[in-house]
Simulated scan of single mutants.
Amino acid sequence: MTDRAELESTARQYALFFENVTPERIKEVHELISDDVHFIDPFNDVKGRENFEKVFHKMYEDVQEPRFKILDLAWSGDLCFMRWDFTCKQKHLGNWSVRGLTEVHFDAQGKVSAHYDYWDASRHFYRKLPIVGAMIKWIASRAAI
């Protein structure tokens, strides 16, 4: 089993990966993640390094100037939570920003085995889409006080 100091080091390196990722640097994450890493966000639920990489390549196809700013890391036992801001430009949405939280799990070797993103896709993405957004805004107005 890996000790807490090693997990914290891996978590810091993982956070730096996100802050510095470019299409050319995506493979640098390999040394930090397990072969069967599980990645979930509002759009994806994939397993394995290859699919993890595909998520990033797709991001670079869909948006321009994506940037992650890691705000802080917090711990609950051996579970790391990474709070972040994401910004980019998207041709249909314009300038786009999201604040989110990632739950990071580690395997026995201290590699990232799971990455679960939590952010409000309804507010930050779907509401901005022309037809879907109008429906979501209407539904939200009916549910709000």
Rank of each mutant, 00 (worst) to 15 (best):
R25H: 10
E53F: 11
W84Q: 02
W96C: 06
W96H: 15
V46P: 00
I40M: 12
R67Y: 05
E50D: 10
I40D: 07
L101P: 01
E65N: 15
L101H: 01
W96G: 05
V21F: 09
K58H: 14
L71P: 02
P66G: 04
V46R: 00
C80E: 01
V37M: 08
H92G: 09
V46W: 00
K27Y: 09
S76W: 00
D78S: 11
F52C: 00
F81D: 04
L79D: 10
E31H: 08
N20S: 14
D41W: 12
D35A: 14
D85S: 12
L32D: 10
D85K: 13
V63P: 00
G48W: 02
D62F: 13
V63R: 00
F52A: 01
G94S: 01
D78P: 08
K47Q: 15
Q90Y: 05
D85I: 10
E50A: 12
P23S: 06
L32Q: 09
N51H: 14
V55L: 09
K58M: 12
Q90I: 04
E53Q: 08
V98G: 02
W75M: 09
R67C: 09
V29Q: 01
F56T: 02
S97T: 13
R49Y: 05
W96I: 10
K69D: 14
E50R: 06
D62H: 09
A74L: 08
F81L: 12
T102K: 01
T87C: 11
R99Q: 11
E24I: 04
L101W: 00
N51W: 04
H57T: 15
L32R: 04
M82E: 11
D62L: 15
F43I: 11
I33H: 05
K89W: 14
R99A: 11
V29F: 02
I33D: 04
L73K: 02
F43R: 07
N95F: 12
D45G: 10
A74F: 06
N51R: 14
I70S: 08
K27F: 08
T102G: 11
K69V: 13
F52P: 00
E31T: 06
V98N: 06
E28Y: 03
D72P: 02
G48L: 00
V46S: 00
H38M: 07
V98P: 02
K47G: 12
A74W: 02
K91T: 11
K27W: 08
H57W: 12
C80R: 00
F52S: 01
G77V: 09
F68S: 03
G100H: 09
T102S: 15
E31I: 04
H30G: 01
V29I: 13
K69T: 15
N20C: 07
G100S: 09
